[in-house]
């Protein structure tokens, strides 16, 4: 079988010279090498949706940059859609789509439609095919009137929908997403996740994404690669990972009086502030509704919030288990 992406001992190290303090240091410096990515190996099959996660500085973005052809590795090999990305960057560019969550590829002051039209020329797309794709996507993504609105007047969620549309209009086979839902509200995140998942499924699109949000991974990807300090720590299907690490919720109760007392299986209490009870709930054992119902019965609850455990915590757990 031919893979959409392969990486073999892919590595990237940066060198910089570190100068000490004092006059002596002005004449000597020490060469320091940082291994951002230290020999990663993986293969991704066509149509697979894979998340690369890890703490800040783990080497996610560097890996993504090497695979999209922006950055040359220091050693190792990789192919993306049968091409060597950093040598055949242009040929590859026609076949991939890229979204950098924190950087816009649209022209702020102009309607999104104008940016799309420019991209049509950049990617040499036939006008009719392009119009058909835009029509499909604008229906799916409810872009409608947004298309004729200046991008800088859009909300972040609307803008991100346009960004993703922009990256898909030339019909790529592979989509790179770097933090696609960063800074968005819950509804906007849900819309983006649904769209990416469905679009990828319908078009056989291979997806490679990095994110800090565990829900992005759970809802979009069928496989997770965890990296830390430039190395792969875990490479597993999401299902397997979910069972072990992702099936938890954090529920916080605000109460006027004493702390909520609950004794249910699968519920552990965490340290909280005054008048706040923080519970970690294992959803494989007990359902969230059950926990809330039990707490409500206890009385005196003023507010409830339900959250996913932060990514750092999940990674920490995975990392601890892998050792």
């Amino acid at each position: 079988m031919s893979f959409a992406v392969t990486a073999a001992q892919l590595s990237k190290s940066y060198r910089y010279s570190r100068r000490g303090r004092g006059w002596r240091a002005a004449f000597s410096s020490e060469q320091v090498t940082i291994e951002a990515v230290a020999g990663v190996d993986f293969q991704i099959a066509p149509g697979e949706r894979v998340a690369i996660i890890g703490p800040n500085g783990a080497g996610k973005s560097t890996t993504l940059k090497m695979l999209s052809g922006i950055l040359q590795p220091s050693s190792g090999a990789a192919t993306v859609l049968g091409l060597v990305p950093w040598r055949q960057r242009k040929a590859l560019a026609y076949r991939i789509g890229v979204v950098f969550g924190q950087r816009s590829q649209l022209w702020g002051e102009l309607p999104a439609r104008d940016s799309f039209d420019l991209l049509r020329h950049v990617y040499d797309q036939d006008a009719r095919v392009f119009a058909r794709r835009l029509g499909e996507m604008s229906e799916r993504f409810a872009l409608g009137e947004l298309l004729d609105q200046p991008v800088h007047r859009m909300s972040l969620g609307q803008r991100m929908r346009c960004e993703i549309t922009a990256s898909l209009l030339h019909g790529p086979e592979l989509l790179f997403l770097d933090e696609p839902t960063i800074g968005l509200d819950v509804t906007a995140k849900a819309a983006i996740r649904d769209f990416i998942r469905e679009h990828a499924r319908d078009h056989g699109l291979t997806v490679l994404l990095t994110s800090h949000d565990t829900r992005d991974i759970e809802l979009v990807c069928d496989r997770v690669i965890v990296v830390n300090q430039g190395r792969i720590v875990v490479d597993q299907p999401t299902d397997q990972l979910r069972r072990r690490f992702l099936g938890r919720k954090i529920i916080t109760f605000q109460s006027a009086g004493a702390a909520v007392s609950l004794d249910l299986p699968g519920v552990t209490r965490r340290a909280g502030a005054a008048h706040a009870t923080v519970l970690e709930v294992d959803t494989r054992v007990v359902r969230v509704e059950q926990v809330i119902a039990a707490a409500m019965a206890d009385g005196g609850i003023e507010d409830v919030t339900i959250e996913d455990p932060p990514m750092e915590e999940v990674i920490h757990d995975i990392y601890a288990a892998a050792r």
Binding site: S68, G69, A93, Y94, F100, V122, D124
Partner: peptide
Amino acid sequence: GELDALLTQPK
């Protein structure tokens, strides 16, 4: 670092 996005485009 705005070159990154442009580098992922073909032309």
